[in-house]
Amino acid sequence: MKRFVIAGLIGIAPVQSHALDEAIGRALFRRAWVPAPSSTLANDGLGPLFNARSCAACHTTLDRVKVETDAAGIVMSDNIALRFSNASGAPDPVYGRQLQTSAVSGVMPEGRIVMSNGCYKPDALAYGDLDPQTRTGTLLAPALRGLGLIETIPDAAILAMTQEEKPDGVRGRINWVTDSHGQKRIGRFGWKASAPTLPEQVEQAFHLDLGMSTLGRPALAGDCTSAQKACLAAPHGGDETTPEISGEIVSRIAAYLASIAPPPVAETKRAGERLFAATGCAACHRPSIPGKDGPVRAFTDLLLHDMGAELDGGATEPGVASTEWRTAPLWGLSRALANSSRLLHDGRASTLEDAIRLHGGEAARARTRFEALNASERQKLIEYLRSL
């Protein structure tokens, strides 16, 4: 037996490295980071610009939840981000890749997010106007269940899906990502499939959401730009050779995320399941993909698909069109609906029917088939989706 104390976690655990990593990772996921310099060096380095003080602040549960706003429409919760880019995916020259709504002492937050006319928008920008070429895009914090199973899907299985003949003009492509070692990898995590592994997804979150450096993303000032002098001059919790967040911390948070079980599989509603396939939804939202330990029933193909102008996200990433999205896993959809979360990447849909009707591009023919269903058939398909 081994006694351990970290981030307020005290207990007795058997000496099993994976279980210990998961337990420590859970505590680190919940840890509130503080600005440097602090009396507790292991906790500092937050910012200078940031969106949240902990991973758990953006993911208050492991499921997707409603974005909270006040009476004036100002966003009060941390489970939403506004991204900035031009048409090619380059960040805004002043505000960087993401609007940071909080800052350490002596640095001005970049602005705030407001809900206006059904859309989330930047407001009270502190460093002047956005570049005329900059587009804004909204991303809601996704559910975190089952990520470990997605990581077990072999690259060969994803490659094989790109070679299959698909109906209705459905294509789908891999987002090849250059990792921190300079290697081309298959992206599988994130709205744009921009992270090939869970550790790299964790590093992205530290960089953009908490403003903290890691081995893979060593910028000490996070998303600060050369135009933000106070941010660049603020104290940091690391230096050019020692990041604020060590590789060990990243790997343990990733181990915790990988340990979170997927949502339980509901009893199959056969009629709705048949309609899901017949309309063409399953061409992208594949009910299962072979994993190393058995089928992964995530209802995705992990590929990028062009969804047309209806789902243009505005801001994007290099090499990915603003209309391209990784097929979102549908497992856990019932939990999101129970939490009153709006749907799609930016919450623009309030109902499943609205979400389906916004599917254009490669999904246009599936949408047409859905619209052609009679009322009874349509209800059966919606009930099936609600059961996932």
Rank of each mutant, 00 (worst) to 15 (best):
K2D: 00
F4V: 06
V5Y: 14
I12S: 05
A13M: 14
L20G: 03
A23M: 13
W33A: 05
V34E: 14
V34Q: 15
A36K: 13
P37G: 06
P37W: 14
T40I: 08
A42G: 08
G45P: 02
G45W: 00
P48K: 14
N51R: 11
A57F: 04
T61N: 09
R64T: 06
V67D: 06
A71Y: 15
I74P: 00
V75A: 07
N79H: 08
N86M: 02
A87N: 07
A87C: 04
A90C: 01
L99R: 11
A103Y: 14
G106N: 03
P109W: 13
P109R: 13
E110I: 01
E110W: 12
V114F: 06
V114G: 02
M115W: 15
N117G: 01
K121I: 02
K121H: 01
P122S: 02
Y127S: 09
Y127I: 09
G128A: 09
D129R: 13
L130H: 13
P132K: 08
T134H: 09
R135G: 04
G137K: 07
L139Y: 07
P142T: 11
P142R: 13
A143R: 05
L147S: 10
E151F: 10
E151Y: 12
A157S: 12
A160F: 12
Q163K: 11
K166P: 05
D179T: 09
S180D: 02
G182L: 01
Q183N: 08
F189Y: 14
F189L: 07
G190M: 09
S194H: 13
S194Q: 14
L198S: 09
A205Q: 15
H207F: 13
G211W: 03
G211N: 02
T214I: 07
T214Y: 02
A221N: 12
D223P: 05
A227M: 10
A227T: 10
Q228N: 04
Q228V: 02
C231P: 10
G238R: 03
P243H: 06
P243N: 04
R252N: 11
L257M: 15
I260H: 07
A261R: 03
P264E: 12
T268L: 06
R270V: 13
R270G: 00
A271F: 11
A271E: 12
L275T: 04
F276S: 02
T279G: 01
G280N: 06
A283Y: 05
P287A: 00
S288M: 05
I289S: 01
I289V: 15
R297Q: 12
A298S: 13
D301C: 03
D301L: 01
D301S: 03
L303R: 14
H305L: 00
D306N: 01
D306K: 02
G308D: 01
D312N: 14
G313A: 11
G314E: 00
G314K: 05
A315W: 08
T316S: 14
G319I: 08
W325Y: 08
L330Y: 04
L333H: 10
R335Q: 06
A336S: 10
L337H: 08
S341D: 09
G347T: 07
R348K: 12
T351Y: 09
A355C: 00
I356V: 09
L358N: 08
L358S: 08
H359L: 01
H359R: 06
G360W: 12
G360V: 11
E362I: 01
E362H: 01
A363N: 12
R365G: 00
N374L: 01
E377S: 12
L381V: 03
I382W: 11
I382Q: 09
Y384V: 05
L385E: 04
L388I: 15
